[in-house]
Design a protein around this nucleic acid. Sequence first.
DNA 1: ACCTGAACACCGTTCAAGT
DNA 2: ACCTGAACACCGTTCAAGT
Lengths: 179, 179
Amino acid sequence: MPTPERTTLDEIVHTASALLETEGVQGVTMQAVAERVGVRAPSLYKRVHSRDRLIQLVAEGSLSELARRLEGVDDPRLLADTLRAFGHERPAAFQLVMSPGAEAQTASAQFGEAASASILRVASALAGPDDALEAARTLTAWAVGFIGMELNGTFKLGGDVQAAWEFGVARIVAAITLD
Amino acid sequence: MPTPERTTLDEIVHTASALLETEGVQGVTMQAVAERVGVRAPSLYKRVHSRDRLIQLVAEGSLSELARRLEGVDDPRLLADTLRAFGHERPAAFQLVMSPGAEAQTASAQFGEAASASILRVASALAGPDDALEAARTLTAWAVGFIGMELNGTFKLGGDVQAAWEFGVARIVAAITLD
DNA sequence: ACCTGAACACCGTTCAAGT
DNA sequence: ACCTGAACACCGTTCAAGT
Protein backbone atom coordinates (compact mmCIF):
# COMPACT_ATOMS: atom_id res chain seq x y z
CA MET A 1 0.00 0.00 0.00
CA PRO A 2 1.60 3.25 -1.15
CA THR A 3 2.41 5.94 1.36
CA PRO A 4 1.83 9.55 0.27
CA GLU A 5 4.99 11.61 -0.26
CA ARG A 6 5.62 13.79 2.75
CA THR A 7 8.29 15.99 1.19
CA THR A 8 10.09 16.75 -2.05
CA LEU A 9 13.68 17.10 -3.19
CA ASP A 10 13.06 20.80 -3.69
CA GLU A 11 11.88 21.27 -0.14
CA ILE A 12 14.86 19.31 1.14
CA VAL A 13 17.36 21.44 -0.80
CA HIS A 14 15.71 24.69 0.25
CA THR A 15 15.65 23.59 3.87
CA ALA A 16 19.31 22.64 3.67
CA SER A 17 20.10 26.06 2.16
CA ALA A 18 18.37 27.82 5.02
CA LEU A 19 20.14 25.63 7.57
CA LEU A 20 23.46 26.38 5.88
CA GLU A 21 23.08 30.08 6.61
CA THR A 22 21.76 29.80 10.14
CA GLU A 23 23.90 26.91 11.42
CA GLY A 24 26.88 26.65 9.06
CA VAL A 25 27.85 23.64 6.98
CA GLN A 26 28.35 21.64 10.16
CA GLY A 27 24.72 22.23 11.03
CA VAL A 28 23.42 20.76 7.80
CA THR A 29 22.91 17.28 9.21
CA MET A 30 20.52 14.78 7.72
CA GLN A 31 18.66 14.67 11.00
CA ALA A 32 18.24 18.46 11.19
CA VAL A 33 17.03 18.62 7.58
CA ALA A 34 14.70 15.67 8.11
CA GLU A 35 13.18 17.17 11.23
CA ARG A 36 12.45 20.44 9.42
CA VAL A 37 10.74 18.77 6.49
CA GLY A 38 8.72 16.53 8.81
CA VAL A 39 10.29 13.20 8.11
CA ARG A 40 12.88 10.84 9.61
CA ALA A 41 16.47 10.95 8.43
CA PRO A 42 16.45 7.64 6.54
CA SER A 43 13.58 8.86 4.37
CA LEU A 44 15.80 11.56 2.87
CA TYR A 45 17.71 8.85 1.07
CA LYS A 46 14.65 8.27 -1.11
CA ARG A 47 15.28 11.69 -2.69
CA VAL A 48 19.00 12.38 -2.37
CA HIS A 49 21.91 9.99 -2.63
CA SER A 50 23.94 11.25 0.31
CA ARG A 51 24.68 14.27 2.48
CA ASP A 52 27.58 15.19 0.18
CA ARG A 53 25.25 15.20 -2.77
CA LEU A 54 22.76 17.33 -0.83
CA ILE A 55 25.46 19.90 -0.12
CA GLN A 56 26.37 19.85 -3.78
CA LEU A 57 22.76 20.49 -4.73
CA VAL A 58 22.71 23.46 -2.36
CA ALA A 59 25.89 24.78 -4.00
CA GLU A 60 24.44 24.35 -7.46
CA GLY A 61 21.20 26.07 -6.51
CA SER A 62 23.10 28.98 -5.00
CA LEU A 63 25.32 29.32 -8.04
CA SER A 64 22.27 29.32 -10.30
CA GLU A 65 20.72 32.11 -8.32
CA LEU A 66 23.94 34.10 -8.43
CA ALA A 67 24.11 33.62 -12.19
CA ARG A 68 20.55 34.88 -12.49
CA ARG A 69 21.41 38.05 -10.58
CA LEU A 70 24.45 38.73 -12.75
CA GLU A 71 22.59 38.06 -15.96
CA GLY A 72 21.67 41.47 -17.25
CA VAL A 73 24.43 43.49 -15.63
CA ASP A 74 26.68 45.40 -18.02
CA ASP A 75 28.62 47.79 -15.81
CA PRO A 76 31.72 46.21 -14.24
CA ARG A 77 31.29 48.13 -10.98
CA LEU A 78 27.69 47.02 -10.71
CA LEU A 79 28.74 43.48 -11.51
CA ALA A 80 31.24 43.51 -8.68
CA ASP A 81 28.71 45.08 -6.34
CA THR A 82 26.12 42.45 -7.23
CA LEU A 83 28.59 39.69 -6.43
CA ARG A 84 29.41 41.35 -3.14
CA ALA A 85 25.75 41.84 -2.25
CA PHE A 86 25.17 38.15 -2.76
CA GLY A 87 28.10 37.41 -0.45
CA HIS A 88 26.65 39.65 2.23
CA GLU A 89 23.16 38.20 1.92
CA ARG A 90 24.19 34.57 1.86
CA PRO A 91 27.70 34.39 3.26
CA ALA A 92 27.73 30.65 3.85
CA ALA A 93 26.46 29.90 0.35
CA PHE A 94 29.01 32.29 -1.11
CA GLN A 95 31.86 30.54 0.66
CA LEU A 96 30.49 27.14 -0.26
CA VAL A 97 30.32 28.04 -3.92
CA MET A 98 33.49 30.13 -4.20
CA SER A 99 35.85 28.34 -1.83
CA PRO A 100 34.46 24.89 -1.11
CA GLY A 101 37.62 23.75 0.60
CA ALA A 102 38.46 20.13 0.23
CA GLU A 103 35.38 18.77 1.96
CA ALA A 104 32.29 20.00 0.23
CA GLN A 105 31.50 18.80 -3.24
CA THR A 106 32.04 21.51 -5.79
CA ALA A 107 29.09 22.50 -7.91
CA SER A 108 29.44 20.73 -11.23
CA ALA A 109 31.00 22.76 -14.01
CA GLN A 110 27.88 23.62 -15.97
CA PHE A 111 26.53 25.68 -13.09
CA GLY A 112 29.64 27.82 -13.01
CA GLU A 113 29.42 28.59 -16.68
CA ALA A 114 26.26 30.65 -16.44
CA ALA A 115 27.87 32.94 -13.88
CA SER A 116 31.12 33.03 -15.84
CA ALA A 117 29.29 34.09 -18.97
CA SER A 118 28.19 37.42 -17.50
CA ILE A 119 31.64 38.21 -16.20
CA LEU A 120 33.23 37.22 -19.48
CA ARG A 121 30.85 39.43 -21.40
CA VAL A 122 31.67 42.47 -19.27
CA ALA A 123 35.39 41.71 -19.35
CA SER A 124 35.34 41.36 -23.10
CA ALA A 125 33.74 44.77 -23.49
CA LEU A 126 36.47 46.29 -21.32
CA ALA A 127 39.58 44.45 -22.40
CA GLY A 128 38.73 43.40 -25.91
CA PRO A 129 38.14 39.84 -27.07
CA ASP A 130 41.81 38.81 -27.04
CA ASP A 131 42.29 39.52 -23.34
CA ALA A 132 38.72 38.76 -22.28
CA LEU A 133 39.44 35.50 -20.45
CA GLU A 134 42.46 36.84 -18.60
CA ALA A 135 40.63 40.03 -17.70
CA ALA A 136 37.60 38.11 -16.45
CA ARG A 137 39.81 35.95 -14.28
CA THR A 138 41.60 38.97 -12.87
CA LEU A 139 38.36 40.70 -11.98
CA THR A 140 36.77 37.55 -10.58
CA ALA A 141 39.82 36.58 -8.55
CA TRP A 142 40.03 40.01 -6.99
CA ALA A 143 36.32 40.22 -6.16
CA VAL A 144 36.07 36.68 -4.81
CA GLY A 145 39.27 37.11 -2.81
CA PHE A 146 38.12 40.41 -1.38
CA ILE A 147 34.64 39.26 -0.42
CA GLY A 148 35.98 36.01 1.01
CA MET A 149 38.44 37.85 3.22
CA GLU A 150 35.74 40.28 4.23
CA LEU A 151 33.43 37.45 5.25
CA ASN A 152 36.23 35.63 7.05
CA GLY A 153 36.98 38.68 9.13
CA THR A 154 40.50 39.00 7.74
CA PHE A 155 39.82 42.71 7.37
CA LYS A 156 38.42 43.06 10.83
CA LEU A 157 41.45 44.89 12.13
CA GLY A 158 41.18 48.54 11.21
CA GLY A 159 40.80 50.37 7.95
CA ASP A 160 37.75 51.27 5.95
CA VAL A 161 36.61 48.14 4.12
CA GLN A 162 34.20 50.01 1.88
CA ALA A 163 36.98 52.40 0.85
CA ALA A 164 39.28 49.45 0.07
CA TRP A 165 36.54 47.92 -2.06
CA GLU A 166 36.01 51.10 -4.04
CA PHE A 167 39.76 51.59 -4.42
CA GLY A 168 40.07 48.04 -5.70
CA VAL A 169 37.15 48.21 -8.13
CA ALA A 170 38.41 51.42 -9.67
CA ARG A 171 41.99 50.19 -10.04
CA ILE A 172 41.07 46.75 -11.34
CA VAL A 173 38.62 48.09 -13.87
CA ALA A 174 41.20 50.61 -15.07
CA ALA A 175 43.86 47.91 -15.16
CA ILE A 176 41.93 45.61 -17.47
CA THR A 177 40.49 48.32 -19.67
CA LEU A 178 41.88 48.68 -23.14
CA ASP A 179 43.67 51.99 -23.56
CA MET B 1 53.49 6.45 39.53
CA PRO B 2 54.16 8.85 36.66
CA THR B 3 53.93 7.61 33.10
CA PRO B 4 56.54 8.89 30.63
CA GLU B 5 55.22 11.28 27.97
CA ARG B 6 54.70 9.41 24.74
CA THR B 7 54.21 12.43 22.49
CA THR B 8 54.30 16.23 22.46
CA LEU B 9 52.00 19.01 21.31
CA ASP B 10 54.48 19.78 18.56
CA GLU B 11 54.40 16.26 17.23
CA ILE B 12 50.60 16.28 17.35
CA VAL B 13 50.34 19.52 15.39
CA HIS B 14 52.86 18.41 12.79
CA THR B 15 51.10 15.08 12.38
CA ALA B 16 47.79 16.87 11.97
CA SER B 17 49.37 19.17 9.34
CA ALA B 18 50.60 16.18 7.36
CA LEU B 19 47.21 14.48 7.64
CA LEU B 20 45.53 17.67 6.48
CA GLU B 21 47.39 17.53 3.16
CA THR B 22 47.04 13.82 2.54
CA GLU B 23 43.48 13.27 3.76
CA GLY B 24 41.82 16.67 3.82
CA VAL B 25 40.30 18.40 6.84
CA GLN B 26 37.80 15.58 7.16
CA GLY B 27 40.68 13.16 7.60
CA VAL B 28 42.13 15.03 10.55
CA THR B 29 40.33 12.96 13.17
CA MET B 30 41.54 12.63 16.72
CA GLN B 31 41.82 8.88 16.21
CA ALA B 32 43.93 9.19 13.06
CA VAL B 33 46.25 11.71 14.71
CA ALA B 34 46.48 9.60 17.86
CA GLU B 35 47.32 6.45 15.94
CA ARG B 36 50.15 8.21 14.09
CA VAL B 37 51.73 9.59 17.24
CA GLY B 38 51.42 6.24 18.99
CA VAL B 39 48.78 7.01 21.55
CA ARG B 40 45.04 6.55 22.07
CA ALA B 41 42.65 9.35 21.15
CA PRO B 42 41.72 10.36 24.71
CA SER B 43 45.37 11.04 25.50
CA LEU B 44 45.47 13.87 22.99
CA TYR B 45 43.25 15.87 25.30
CA LYS B 46 46.18 16.13 27.72
CA ARG B 47 47.92 18.40 25.17
CA VAL B 48 45.17 20.06 23.16
CA HIS B 49 41.78 21.28 24.25
CA SER B 50 39.73 19.99 21.34
CA ARG B 51 39.84 19.04 17.67
CA ASP B 52 38.78 22.57 16.74
CA ARG B 53 41.72 23.97 18.67
CA LEU B 54 44.05 21.47 17.00
CA ILE B 55 42.90 22.64 13.57
CA GLN B 56 43.44 26.20 14.69
CA LEU B 57 46.99 25.36 15.79
CA VAL B 58 47.63 23.84 12.36
CA ALA B 59 46.32 27.02 10.73
CA GLU B 60 48.50 29.19 12.94
CA GLY B 61 51.59 27.13 12.26
CA SER B 62 50.96 27.26 8.52
CA LEU B 63 50.42 31.01 8.61
CA SER B 64 53.66 31.46 10.54
CA GLU B 65 55.57 29.50 7.96
CA LEU B 66 54.00 31.52 5.16
CA ALA B 67 54.96 34.73 6.94
CA ARG B 68 58.54 33.47 7.23
CA ARG B 69 58.69 32.84 3.49
CA LEU B 70 57.38 36.29 2.65
CA GLU B 71 59.68 38.01 5.11
CA GLY B 72 62.55 39.27 3.01
CA VAL B 73 60.75 39.60 -0.30
CA ASP B 74 60.73 43.08 -1.83
CA ASP B 75 59.57 42.56 -5.39
CA PRO B 76 55.76 42.46 -5.75
CA ARG B 77 55.88 39.80 -8.47
CA LEU B 78 58.12 37.61 -6.35
CA LEU B 79 55.84 38.18 -3.38
CA ALA B 80 52.84 36.97 -5.37
CA ASP B 81 54.82 34.02 -6.71
CA THR B 82 55.90 33.04 -3.21
CA LEU B 83 52.31 33.08 -2.03
CA ARG B 84 51.30 30.96 -4.99
CA ALA B 85 54.15 28.50 -4.45
CA PHE B 86 52.99 28.00 -0.89
CA GLY B 87 49.48 27.32 -2.18
CA HIS B 88 50.78 24.71 -4.59
CA GLU B 89 52.96 23.02 -2.01
CA ARG B 90 50.38 22.93 0.77
CA PRO B 91 46.99 23.41 -0.86
CA ALA B 92 44.94 22.26 2.10
CA ALA B 93 46.83 24.49 4.51
CA PHE B 94 46.48 27.42 2.12
CA GLN B 95 42.73 26.99 1.94
CA LEU B 96 42.49 26.49 5.68
CA VAL B 97 44.36 29.71 6.35
CA MET B 98 42.95 31.85 3.57
CA SER B 99 39.36 30.67 3.36
CA PRO B 100 38.52 28.77 6.52
CA GLY B 101 34.82 28.67 5.71
CA ALA B 102 32.51 28.73 8.66
CA GLU B 103 33.69 25.49 10.25
CA ALA B 104 37.38 25.70 10.95
CA GLN B 105 38.63 28.06 13.58
CA THR B 106 40.43 30.98 12.05
CA ALA B 107 44.02 31.53 13.06
CA SER B 108 44.06 34.22 15.70
CA ALA B 109 44.81 37.70 14.47
CA GLN B 110 48.42 38.00 15.59
CA PHE B 111 49.47 35.26 13.21
CA GLY B 112 48.01 37.11 10.26
CA GLU B 113 49.86 40.27 11.08
CA ALA B 114 53.30 38.90 10.32
CA ALA B 115 52.23 37.91 6.83
CA SER B 116 50.37 41.17 6.35
CA ALA B 117 53.46 43.13 7.28
CA SER B 118 55.44 41.94 4.27
CA ILE B 119 52.62 42.67 1.87
CA LEU B 120 52.01 46.06 3.40
CA ARG B 121 55.68 46.95 3.10
CA VAL B 122 55.74 46.06 -0.60
CA ALA B 123 52.43 47.80 -1.24
CA SER B 124 53.63 50.91 0.50
CA ALA B 125 56.71 51.08 -1.70
CA LEU B 126 54.50 50.82 -4.78
CA ALA B 127 51.50 52.95 -3.90
CA GLY B 128 52.92 55.33 -1.38
CA PRO B 129 52.03 55.41 2.32
CA ASP B 130 48.60 56.98 1.87
CA ASP B 131 47.26 54.18 -0.30
CA ALA B 132 49.37 51.40 1.21
CA LEU B 133 46.56 49.60 3.05
CA GLU B 134 44.15 49.73 0.14
CA ALA B 135 46.85 48.65 -2.29
CA ALA B 136 47.90 45.76 -0.05
CA ARG B 137 44.30 44.59 0.19
CA THR B 138 43.85 44.80 -3.55
CA LEU B 139 46.97 42.76 -4.23
CA THR B 140 46.20 40.23 -1.51
CA ALA B 141 42.58 39.82 -2.52
CA TRP B 142 43.53 39.19 -6.13
CA ALA B 143 46.29 36.70 -5.32
CA VAL B 144 44.29 34.80 -2.72
CA GLY B 145 41.25 34.73 -4.98
CA PHE B 146 43.27 33.53 -7.94
CA ILE B 147 45.14 30.81 -6.07
CA GLY B 148 42.00 29.66 -4.32
CA MET B 149 40.14 29.31 -7.61
CA GLU B 150 43.12 27.56 -9.10
CA LEU B 151 43.22 25.06 -6.25
CA ASN B 152 39.46 24.55 -6.38
CA GLY B 153 39.64 23.69 -10.03
CA THR B 154 37.46 26.63 -11.03
CA PHE B 155 39.96 27.29 -13.81
CA LYS B 156 40.02 23.70 -14.95
CA LEU B 157 38.04 24.40 -18.09
CA GLY B 158 40.35 25.72 -20.76
CA GLY B 159 42.70 28.63 -20.98
CA ASP B 160 46.29 29.02 -19.87
CA VAL B 161 46.30 29.47 -16.10
CA GLN B 162 49.94 30.55 -15.99
CA ALA B 163 49.23 33.21 -18.62
CA ALA B 164 46.25 34.46 -16.62
CA TRP B 165 48.45 34.69 -13.52
CA GLU B 166 51.11 36.70 -15.30
CA PHE B 167 48.50 38.93 -16.90
CA GLY B 168 46.96 39.54 -13.49
CA VAL B 169 50.23 40.22 -11.68
CA ALA B 170 51.33 42.73 -14.28
CA ARG B 171 48.01 44.57 -14.35
CA ILE B 172 47.52 44.62 -10.60
CA VAL B 173 51.04 45.84 -9.91
CA ALA B 174 50.63 48.56 -12.51
CA ALA B 175 47.22 49.46 -11.11
CA ILE B 176 48.44 50.07 -7.58
CA THR B 177 51.72 51.74 -8.56
CA LEU B 178 51.99 55.46 -8.05
CA ASP B 179 52.33 57.26 -11.34
C1' DA C 1 51.37 12.44 35.92
C1' DC C 2 50.16 10.45 31.91
C1' DC C 3 47.63 6.70 29.58
C1' DT C 4 43.69 3.73 28.71
C1' DG C 5 39.06 1.25 28.03
C1' DA C 6 34.51 2.09 28.50
C1' DA C 7 30.88 4.98 27.91
C1' DC C 8 27.96 8.86 26.01
C1' DA C 9 25.91 11.65 22.61
C1' DC C 10 26.06 12.36 18.14
C1' DC C 11 26.83 11.56 13.10
C1' DG C 12 25.81 9.17 8.04
C1' DT C 13 23.92 5.27 6.13
C1' DT C 14 21.58 0.63 5.39
C1' DC C 15 17.80 -2.37 5.65
C1' DA C 16 14.13 -5.28 7.04
C1' DA C 17 9.62 -4.56 8.45
C1' DG C 18 5.53 -1.84 8.52
C1' DT C 19 1.47 0.63 6.02
C1' DA D 1 5.80 3.13 -2.90
C1' DC D 2 7.21 5.63 0.76
C1' DC D 3 8.21 5.71 5.74
C1' DT D 4 10.19 4.00 10.00
C1' DG D 5 12.92 1.92 14.03
C1' DA D 6 16.79 -0.57 14.74
C1' DA D 7 21.32 -1.33 13.79
C1' DC D 8 26.22 -0.45 12.22
C1' DA D 9 30.43 1.96 11.86
C1' DC D 10 32.23 5.98 12.86
C1' DC D 11 33.02 10.55 15.20
C1' DG D 12 34.48 13.94 19.52
C1' DT D 13 34.77 13.97 24.26
C1' DT D 14 34.62 12.64 29.34
C1' DC D 15 36.06 10.05 33.14
C1' DA D 16 37.10 6.54 36.38
C1' DA D 17 40.56 3.27 36.81
C1' DG D 18 45.10 1.69 35.93
C1' DT D 19 50.45 2.27 36.22
